[in-house]
Design a protein around this nucleic acid. Structure first.
Lengths: 157, 157
DNA sequence: TAGAATGGTCAATGTGGTTGTCCATGTCGA
DNA sequence: TCGACATGGACAACCACATTGACCATTCTA
């Protein structure tokens, strides 16, 4: 089944724009709620750290960046008070990285902001259409949609 | 209308992943077809240059970057043979930037690759659902979806 | 227990963005 | 018409964030 040629870029671009406007709105809310320093990619970092915490090396793997870059990111987030580093009593090599309560707070607020956006989309499109939208997007995206190797992906000029 | 809390991030993330996989596929095709040096953002740059050509300053405005950064990008693309610079006979200040035939070729191939993806999505979802998907995405994205101020937007850690 | 693998850090580097400055050219109004 | 301002472009210094390479401490394993 073929469609009018030359229009294929609109749909992907709309998807990017939808993502972008959602992220921008979330971070505008976060800034208003006491987290003005958070940047779009920090949400990915927090998700990659997870509730259990992790290490810099593992974080780098999840984010698709080098362990050195992950270490620097952790250092920056530590300065901002969003994560704290500790030691692993079972393995003296590992240094754990965990969200602080401030980090957890930002994650909860971010989650709430995303839910508000989803609710608004439901209002605008109707529940059926939103369900269809989700279903269709699941079909055309990879199974492990939570791959976080995003930073730097967009690449260089 | 409210939905299950804590799931709001899935839809935007799926949109990003759909965009990402589409872009990756386009650039894999381009690499196979003689354009291995093109990066995702180059497509945006080419679109911003347009068939008429433009100037570095205007390019910077369209891409949401400084004129200096735009100038450097143009210089890099010139080295790669995708754009050429000329002078404007009506305004000695302006230096025009135009796509070379190689640049136009890459744009055409990129467009064809996007169309192939759209056709595949039509196969996977059905024509009706794809139309609905487009319609719904138009509703939740800004009117001027072609804003190209993407580079660097994702921000810092 | 020696050697390989793992986690972390430091250093040097590269890229692509920024601001600041300057100059040439064009535009417009007193 | 000419002086003030605006615009397009280039150069320099700087910065953020990634990279690779090297190195050390610790743990695992053959």
């Amino acid at each position: 089944m073929s469609s009018e040629p030359g229009t294929g870029f609109e749909l992907p671009l709309r998807m990017l724009m939808a993502f972008r406007t959602a992220i921008d709105e979330v971070h505008a809310d976060l800034a208003r709620e006491g987290h003005p320093d958070l940047r779009p990619m920090h949400g990915f970092v927090f998700q990659a750290i997870g509730p259990q915490g992790t290490t810099a090396v593992e974080l780098g793997r999840r984010l698709g960046i080098s362990k050195q870059a992950a270490g620097k990111t952790v250092e920056a987030l530590e300065r901002l008070g969003y994560v704290e580093r500790g030691t692993d009593p079972w393995d003296a090599r590992r240094k754990t990285v965990r969200l602080t309560s401030r980090g957890a707070d930002s994650l909860a607020r971010s989650s709430a902001a995303f839910d508000r956006i989803r609710d608004r989309w439901t209002d605008e499109l109707g529940a059926d259409r939103l369900r269809a939208l989700e279903e269709d997007l699941r079909k055309i995206t990879p199974e492990d949609f939570f791959r976080l190797d995003i930073p730097g992906w967009f690449g260089s000029a």
